[in-house]
């Protein structure tokens, strides 16, 4: 048993232990903090498995936006929790436990049943990497070989925003999402919100740009940009834009819109939907990704900001 195996076993048992503790602990708040730490460790595991693209997403979502959502929700729930005396009956808890245990067992069974070596398209993807002029296989799959799935994912993001906005009351419709955050303009938070975003924007653009040949891409970059935007909003330095803003809506549809337009162009001028002409594949894909990073940043930021609750005046 070499040292790398020991390391993997330790990492796996730490993550499993933390996961079990997160489920077992009674207090929502402690469980949430445990979960934030858990997602950091999972990012380590993804790197160890050589899935750095996934690790980047896990770090950007789990470390940044997910933590903000969960901790904010736990803080709001805390007051409600103190008031409720109601407890789920033993039967309900028992059946929930049985359900979760059987799902885990089914997943474990399915993994053990996989043929060895598992069926994979990875060699084909690597062999055709030159077709788009980009060498990151994940970007090739997402943007070219399975471009349709990625486009529909962006439409799902748009639907999520529509869903959040539809929670607004009639009076607030068209107004600004979320509360107006306030903090001392000379305080620590405002200081951070002035210092960090310039660096963060550079990192976000870098992650998008490096995604052509190395792990990275529009979603990870967009999540970083969204975090920076949210930091400025939380520090009270900027307000959320009113949802009736035409600019905002244009940015929200820019990514899927351009993707769809280029896809239809492939159907019209080329052989199939979303087929890129070989000479222009890389510029076209980069163009889509630039539009997408803006859409993703705006969408994630607005999802966290919440439903419109103040009129725009």
């Amino acid at each position: 048993m070499n040292i790398a195996t020991v390391f993997e076993i330790v990492l796996a048992s730490v993550v499993l232990g933390l996961a079990i503790w997160t489920i077992a602990v009674a207090e929502t708040y402690s469980a949430t903090v445990g979960f934030v730490a858990y997602s950091l460790l999972v990012a380590l595991i993804w790197v160890r498995l050589d899935a750095v693209d996934v690790a980047l997403t896990e770090a950007a979502i789990g470390g940044g936006l997910g933590g903000v959502v969960l901790l904010g929700a736990a803080a709001r729930l805390r007051d409600a929790e103190a008031l409720t005396v109601e407890q789920a009956s033993p039967i309900v808890r028992m059946s929930a436990a049985i359900l979760s245990a059987s799902i885990t067992a089914a997943l474990a069974f399915a993994i053990l049943l996989l043929p060895d070596p598992a069926p994979t398209l990875a060699p084909t993807v690597v062999a055709n990497a030159g077709a788009t002029g980009m060498t990151n296989p994940v970007t090739n799959v997402l943007m070219a070989f399975r471009g349709m799935d990625t486009m529909l994912e962006k439409v799902v993001l748009l639907l999520a925003i529509v869903g959040v906005w539809s929670l607004a009351s009639d009076r607030a419709w068209g107004g600004r999402p979320g509360p107006r955050h306030q903090a001392d303009p000379n305080g620590v938070l405002a200081f951070l919100a002035r210092l960090l975003p310039p660096a963060g924007i550079v990192v976000g653009v870098y992650i998008l740009w490096t995604g052509a040949d190395h792990p990275g891409g529009a979603f990870q970059g967009g999540a970083v940009l969204a975090s920076m935007w949210l930091l400025v909003i939380m520090a009270g330095l900027a307000d959320t834009p009113p949802v009736s803003s035409r600019w905002l809506r244009l940015i929200l549809v820019a990514g899927p819109g351009l993707f769809l337009a280029i896809g239809l162009g492939g159907l019209w001028l080329g052989p199939a939907f979303l087929s890129y002409p070989a000479a222009f594949a890389k510029p076209l894909i980069l163009g889509i990704e630039v539009a997408m990073i803006l859409t993703i940043a705006a969408t994630l930021g607005l999802l966290l900001a919440g439903a419109p609750e103040r009129s725009s005046q």
């Binding site: 903090v33 934030v36 950091l40 990012a43 790197v47 750095v52 690790a55 980047l56 770090a59 950007a60 470390g63 940044g64 936006l65 933590g67 903000v68 901790l71 904010g72 929700a73 736990a74 803080a75 709001r76 979320g178 509360p179 107006r180 955050h181 306030q182 903090a183 001392d184 305080g187 938070l189 951070l192 960090l196 660096a199 963060g200 990192v203 992650i207 490096t210 190395h214 792990p215 990275g216 990870q220 970083v224 975090s227 930091l231 939380m234």
Partner: peptide
């Protein structure tokens, strides 16, 4: 080498959970 990029994102976003924690879900800090 890309593991360094993951570390870069973690370092950039290291403050976020703590800010959410300090804000306690309130608009005013």
């Amino acid at each position: 080498p890309a593991a360094v990029d993951v570390a870069l994102i973690l370092a950039l976003l290291a403050t976020f959970a703590s800010i959410a924690f300090v804000k306690k879900g309130l608009p005013r800090l």
